[in-house]
Design a protein around this nucleic acid. Structure first.
Length: 933
DNA sequence: CGGATGACTTGACAGAATTACG
DNA sequence: CGTAATTCTGTCAAGTCATCCG
């Protein structure tokens, strides 16, 4: 059957990054508003809680067999403990979602504590029937399209939730069975489908039809595919159609001119842009390592001298600026260059030439100088080694435990009880968190209690058997008082502490690597405490033990000084592995994962990697069209796994989803693209006037909810229908796909390509396009910055970078609104005044006319202010749940921002704060105003 | 191969430091 | 000039991806 596809508007909308983006915004907001339903307050009895616990335990027995044999955790009891929650994780997701939506809505909550109450209540109870009812009720309040969908979901779940307990168990059993079935099936299939799947029809390049919106596709229903390879009837026809539409979705992606590779030249940013050669396309493909000759050339060019004087000046200036040592990168660059110039030899020698400066100056300078190793101008060696020489002082350990003063008591069952030091310490961890949400969660409490009992003495353990009989209040109060005291310390005391910290920082915070002093990122070893997983983590509350030197591996040069362990201790091992970048590492006991001490992002090691990351993304830019063509073609593949791969790739590309590795059951249940399950998407042939809408609703990294309603192309939609056929809610959507195979495939498409490159690529390209689009050449700097933030926000929305609504947001919002109202009144007043004045002016004298003009001006000014305030209001509200930092730090090629700043005369520090400038020094230095991604 | 592991990047958030404001 | 609001920084959990290993 063939259908004229009327969805062309969908397509062109999503085709432009812009449209795409706004879609996201809508999606997300809709999603949030739909969650109003959760606001109704739930009360749950403690009985519910217990019952739940019981249930968890019961169902867990089923699972014990499936728990990983691997004994990461030597304590069998804790293992049981954790596995006891596995089975319930699915159920929890639902409550999790609730939690999220609540969070999203908190701004509306007049008061935070109320919200908190909600949360804890929710955690305690999973009495679905009741809560469903409530949700129904409140969901009727909600306006908006999303409501219908939500209601749908509710219905579904409520019916599902009948006979909750047994179903739970069943489900677990089924799941296990299912998994194994699937596995079997998978391997069968794989054996059968040995035929090569290189179906990358290298379709011809019909890129010219960019702006063509005709999407007159004819799609026939694809026969259901299960075990057998699919039959495609009309391959040819499909191909045509495919070609036609192939660019619709990505028109914007296509028409960016090939990016010129100016990074190698852009360090001459002080020169007029007109001189920036942009045509060195040829260099683009040259691997970094081969660029040496260019580098050389550049180096010699850069030797043009800059007068010494100038350098001094800039130094001084820098010094003046108390907080910002680089008031302007522009100043700094000459300095750096000069230094280099003097020496002719890049970097290395840098610090000597400055000896002539006064001590005060020196200090400032130091700060600057140690980072100005311009590694990016050196050639890069690409043997697997990360360093030749590495020397450091080892990590700093957490301070030893200080026992509580005797007047701070712990009580059990009302009776005062002196705890052994270890037990007291751990009790203290819990006491500190008493007013935190965590302590209302039963998993947290159970895990904590189990681990706590392990550190108790025999006698203590004999007595303390019930957490609810423990009274930590005095301890809690004590800790509060302590932090209060710290806050109120006198200036001198604070200064003393600060000085001490600086001392430590100076001694341990730096290492010497290949002749340069570089900052270490985290030289302090994590202190002991209670593990705080995110989302519904089965291990939350477990004791994270104190790390001892005997647990720590040290990595450094053979020929350097080996750091000394603290007196009376020794290192677990000292190794000299220059293929890795860490200085020290240890294994954390809760999850059994390695932790590392590594360098600061401003370091060469990190910066180089970062740069490389963006270069890979730029490379992707060059072949993205081809790749898109390929996966579009693959939607019609005969092979199931190719189709799945192609659809997944489409999601990753278009929605910037994460790859989605498989996870163990002892972690929070979150997913990414490859691990999406049936329950995470809904298909709507038609929704809100759009055709073929896929609704995503799942918890992603950090248990952050991803909600998005996306109109997709018909073929994708049909494929999804096929993928979902005959599957249960908790089956994988892409059952023939995992991240390894996906990445392998990507590697074939382009060397170095992996799933996450798409995220980087799409983020950066979105920023660039948004900047182009939103920046008006001749507006004030604040307005430009606003435009930048908007562009940044578009990216954050794309990547689903969310944050909790800031504390007091609603309050500050109200204040702002009040202010706006005030302004409005003023405007009205001024208008009235003006009217009077005009009247007066009409018949009146020069004087009155003048007055009238004045009034007019005043009015205009007021109006402007009002506009500004209103702008601020929307800005802040839009930003309420969106975090810009992550994308800025990890996804946006800094050179785009730098170029934008230079081009529009915006000082770089308006965009990047100090840390960020440190991290992106390479980009600030190398990108000229004409850099294009 | 496929699961485990190791090494890094990415991410939200809490608390400290600054800045804005009344 | 103290306090509230905002921004910065550090922390550490949670991802990604390559490689190792049986």
């Amino acid at each position: 059957m063939s259908v004229e596809n009327p969805a062309s508007d969908n397509d062109c909308e999503s085709g432009k990054v812009n449209g795409n983006k706004s879609e996201h915004v809508n999606g997300i907001h809709n999603g949030y508003s739909s969650s109003d339903k959760h606001k109704s307050s739930h009360k749950s009895s403690s009985k519910d809680k217990h019952r739940d616990k019981d249930r968890d335990h019961k169902s867990s027995s089923k699972h014990s067999s499936s728990s990983r044999d691997k004994d990461r955790d030597k304590h069998s009891s804790s293992k049981n403990n954790s596995s006891s929650h596995k089975s319930s994780s699915k159920d929890k997701e639902r409550s999790d979602k609730k939690e999220h939506s609540d969070r999203e809505h908190s701004s509306k909550d007049k008061d935070r504590s109320e919200k908190e109450k909600h949360r804890s209540d929710k955690d305690k109870h999973r009495d679905k029937d009741r809560s469903d009812k409530e949700r129904h009720k409140s969901s009727s309040d909600e306006k908006k399209s999303s409501s219908s969908k939500d209601k749908n979901r509710e219905h579904k779940s409520s019916s599902k939730d009948k006979d909750h307990k047994s179903r739970d168990k069943d489900r677990d059993r089924e799941k296990d069975k299912h998994r194994s079935d699937k596995d079997k099936y998978r391997s069968d299939k794989d054996r059968h489908s040995s035929s090569k799947d290189k179906h990358r029809s290298s379709k011809s390049k019909d890129k010219s039809n960019d702006e063509k919106n005709k999407y007159n596709s004819e799609l026939q229903d694809i026969p259901s595919v299960k075990d057998e390879p699919m039959q495609i009837e009309d391959e040819k026809e499909i191909k045509h159609e495919n070609l036609d539409e192939s660019n619709d979705g990505y028109a914007a992606g296509v028409n960016t001119t090939a990016s010129s590779c100016d990074y190698s030249l852009s360090q001459f940013k002080d020169e007029p842009l007109s001189e920036l050669p942009l045509d060195d396309e040829s260099e683009e493909e040259i691997p970094l390592s081969d660029r040496k000759s260019n580098k050389r050339r550049m180096a010699s060019e850069s030797e043009e001298d800059i007068p010494l004087l100038q350098r001094k000046k800039s130094k001084k200036k820098v010094k003046k600026e108390s907080y910002d040592d680089y008031d302007d990168e522009e100043e700094e660059k000459p300095k750096v260059k000069k230094k280099k110039t003097e020496k002719t030899k890049p970097s290395k020698i840098k610090s000597e030439p400055e000896e002539d400066v006064s001590p005060t100056k020196r200090k400032k300078k130091q700060d600057d100088d140690q980072e100005v190793w311009k590694w990016w101008e050196e050639e890069k060696k690409d043997d697997g080694t990360k360093w030749k020489f590495l020397e450091h002082k080892g990590p700093v350990f957490a301070p030893a435990y200080e026992p509580l003063p005797p007047n701070v008591r712990f009580r059990y069952d009302g009776k005062e009880m002196r705890l052994s030091q270890d037990a007291e310490e751990v009790a203290g961890f819990y006491a500190r968190m008493l007013d935190h949400d965590y302590t209302t969660k039963s998993i947290f409490n159970t895990n904590f209690f189990t681990d706590w009992r392990k550190v108790m003495t025999h006698e203590e353990a004999k007595i303390i058997k019930d957490l609810s009989k423990c009274d930590f209040k005095e301890m809690h109060a004590y800790f509060q008082a302590q932090s209060e005291k710290n806050r109120n310390k006198s200036k001198e005391e604070k200064a003393a502490i600060k000085a001490k910290n600086e001392e430590i920082q100076k001694e341990y915070g730096f290492c010497t690597i290949d002749g340069h002093k570089e900052k270490i990122g985290n030289f302090r070893i994590e202190p002991p405490g209670l593990f705080r997983g995110r989302g519904e983590h089965p291990k939350m509350g477990m004791l994270k033990k104190r790390v001892m030197p005997e647990d720590v591996l040290i990595n450094c040069s053979k020929d350097g000084k080996v750091p000394k362990p603290p007196p009376g201790h020794k290192w677990k091992e000292v190794r000299h592995d220059n293929t890795v970048t860490w200085l020290a590492s240890w294994t954390e006991n809760v999850q059994g994962q390695a932790k590392y001490v590594m360098l600061n992002p401003s370091s060469k090691l990190k910066g180089e990697k970062d740069w490389q990351k963006y270069e890979t993304a730029r490379k992707l830019h060059k072949c993205i069209d081809k790749i898109r063509e390929t996966y579009r073609a693959d939607w019609k593949s005969k092979e199931m796994r190719v189709r799945q791969r192609a659809v997944a790739l489409y999601f990753i590309d278009r929605l910037a989803l994460r790859a989605g590795n498989e996870k163990d059951d002892d972690q929070a249940d979150t997913v990414g693209c490859c691990s999406l399950r049936i329950e995470h998407i809904e298909l709507h042939k038609e929704k809100d006037g759009k055709e073929f809408v896929v609704v995503f609703d799942f918890l992603g990294k950090d248990s952050i909810r991803y909600y998005n309603e996306v109109p997709v192309e018909k073929r994708v939609f049909k494929n999804l229908e096929i993928f979902m056929e005959n599957k249960r809610d908790n089956d994988d959507l892409f059952d023939r796909l995992n991240t390894q195979t996906l990445n392998e495939h990507l590697k074939d498409l382009m060397p170095g390509l992996t799933a996450k490159v798409f995220r980087t690529y799409n983020a950066s390209i979105t920023l660039q396009r948004q900047l182009d689009e939103l920046t008006d050449g001749d507006v004030s700097i604040p307005e430009k910055i606003l435009a930048y933030n908007r562009a940044n926000r578009a990216v954050a929305v794309l990547c689903n970078h969310q944050r909790a609504v800031p504390k007091g947001h609603s309050k500050s919002m109200e204040a702002l609104k009040e202010k706006i109202q005030g302004k409005r009144d003023q405007v009205d007043e001024a208008e009235e005044d003006l009217r009077q004045a005009t009247k007066a002016a009409k018949r009146g004298s020069v004087k009155e006319k003048l007055a009238c003009d004045k009034k007019k001006k005043a009015l205009e000014r007021l109006k402007e202010q009002l506009k500004k305030l209103e702008l601020q209001e929307t800005d802040r509200d839009e930003n309420k749940t969106i975090a810009l930092g992550t994308s800025k730090l990890n996804y946006l090629d800094p050179r785009i921002s730098v170029a934008w700043c230079k081009k529009h005369g915006v000082p770089i520090e308006k965009i990047y704060n100090k840390t960020q400038r440190d991290k992106f020094r390479w980009a600030i230095d190398m990108a000229g105003p004409d850099y294009v991604f």
